[in-house]
Structure formats: structure tokens, C-alpha cells
Write a protein that binds this DNA or RNA. Sequence first.
DNA 1: ATGCAGATTGATACAAGATAACATTCAGCA
DNA 2: TGCTGAATGTTATCTTGTATCAATCTGCAT
Lengths: 163, 163
Amino acid sequence: MSDNIIIQGFESAEHDHRHCVADALSEAERVCTQRGERFTPLRRTVFELLWSSHKPVKAYDLLAQLALTHDRPAPPTVYRALDFLQEAGLVHKLESLNAYIGCGEPGRRHQGQFLICERCGVVAELDDEALTSRIDANARKIGFKVSDETIEITGLCRQCQVS
Amino acid sequence: MSDNIIIQGFESAEHDHRHCVADALSEAERVCTQRGERFTPLRRTVFELLWSSHKPVKAYDLLAQLALTHDRPAPPTVYRALDFLQEAGLVHKLESLNAYIGCGEPGRRHQGQFLICERCGVVAELDDEALTSRIDANARKIGFKVSDETIEITGLCRQCQVS
DNA sequence: ATGCAGATTGATACAAGATAACATTCAGCA
DNA sequence: TGCTGAATGTTATCTTGTATCAATCTGCAT
């Protein structure tokens, strides 16, 4: 079992974010191609907006951003793109925030665990398989068959504790 | 560490639910008294509605139920009661469902982990401290200070897998 | 090239979930 | 009895998400 469970999040303020975005985009292209689905300009735009930072974005904020480049987009436009991206495993929804964030490792099937800084809003995505196993074990004990996990931890990131 | 991590949920269909309700009510009274807060008739009514089954209830369904006995209640009425009950640890919100459920063990501070059957809608509440510890350990590793956990597992309960 | 089928996007309307702000009433007590 | 803060009532509004139908586009078989 790997000890490096952090997929993304809490990068240094000076990290080259263009690199994150470029990686995410090429991964997205790859995943869509592999799934035989189309990474259309609209979906790509929404995806890029989500990757504009490591903070989750709300659907109506995406809509407002879209309005800058598209002619009066309506809610279904953005929700459909989000649905597609979630289906493809490219985006996660943070249920406790009603917000969406790009997935840091879309290649592998997972649901992710999230650390959400309540001060700066940055979100880290983890994947601790031992945690998932433990949950599965608990479920199995009572005959419950897991299909979906929502694990969202709120608190303060290292930076925000000191500053 | 106790091995019995199930707080409530997936009772047999024939269990005496009046007993669950009676227990929950007396616990609620106790908790409120201890906190120096008032378990008013309205709060009690909302609480009883939440305990009418082991399924989560949506705020506007509560509102509709309330309308049967109260004169044209408005959303703030039910949301205020829910806020109060959540503050007191008597009720949990299931973020992935936008629904609310009575807590099976309000005496002790905890956030709970939930197994949600996507077929029958019944929810089990667990409290696996090892799970919480593991999450805390992961967080600590990257300097994150946890204040709040949302853990909601969707799937099929034993009954619903066979029938 | 042409036209068809399915996927994608556009557009309108509305449903569902939640809160802000201010008025009124109530419980406990000086 | 009247005061104070808590609790509830009331109205309006904001946020989040869907249903539905129309128009357009893409890939492909003819």
C-alpha cells in the first residue's frame, strides 16, 4: 500500500498552476477518447473553469463565468457539462458545499476523500485505500453492499492555521 | 475499542418502533435540559416527525407534515427547528440527500457515518472510531486540522439485495 | 453528396432547498 | 406588572437543480 495518499491539494502558492491545468486537460482528452466520448468545446470550457484553481466552484458561478464568453447560457448548459464530467470521473461534486472540483487522478476509478479548508477554500483530494477497505469491512459486517462513498472532511489547512 | 459500531439502522421490519421513538424523545429531553435549552412543542413535533421511521426526511416534507397540524407553516419554521436540533446533536443532515435524520446516540459527541440504502431509503448510523482516527492521522500527516466530517456511504442493505 | 439517427446544445419554465429581515408572541424573572 | 431575550410568525427572496421541448451538430450508411 502506498503511503502517498494525496492526489492533489494544498500546493505551494507559487506552484506552476498552468502545469496542473495542462495535465488535467490532457488526461481529460485521454479519458474521453478511451471512453469513446466527446470532449466538446463546451465541456472543455467548463472543465477549464473548474481547474482555474484548486478550489471548488459552484454551478451558478460557472454559469456566470460562461456568460462572459457565451451568449446567455442557461443552467442546464452547465449542469449537463458537470454531469458528463462526473460520469467520466473527471470531476467530483462536494456534497457538503454544493460545489464541484476537478479530479486529480481521473485515470483510476475512485471516489476520493476530500479535505476542505474552511478558511481559504482550497480542497485536497486523497485516496486512502485502507480507509475504503475499513468502510467496506464495516458495511460487509452488516450485509451492506457499498456502491458509492461521500467523504468530506472540513477543517483548517496548514497555512490557514498559522496565518 | 468496541466492535459494535452500529448505532442504529436496518432494524427488522417488526421491531417495536414506538420504543425507538420513546427512547429518542427521552434522550432529547435529557440533552436539552442538560444544555439549558428548551425542547419546545414545535421542536418536539419536528423531532417526532423525523423519528417516524429510520429513513431521512426532507425539509419540505417535514413542512408538509407540519401543515397538517399547524396553520400554514413557512420554511423558516422547520429550518429553525432543524438547526436547533442539529446544534444539540439530536439530528444529522445527510448532505448527499439534502435530508435529515434523528441521531441514534445524541448523548455522545460524534458526527456519525451513514450507510444509506438506495432502494428502501433506510439509513444506518455507525460510529467507527478507528475510521475517524485513520482520517485524523491522514489529515495530521499534511498538517490539516479536522473540525467536521461528512461520511455517507450509499448502497444496498441486506434485505434489498435479496428481494 | 444526402439524409438519417443519436448526441449535443439552446431555451423556457419551474421545482426544490434554504435564508434574510422584520414583526409578533411567549417564558422567565426582576 | 412589566421587561428582556428566546422562540415563532410572516413575507419575500435567493440558491440549487430539473423537466421539457426545440434546434443543431456529428458520424455514418446509403
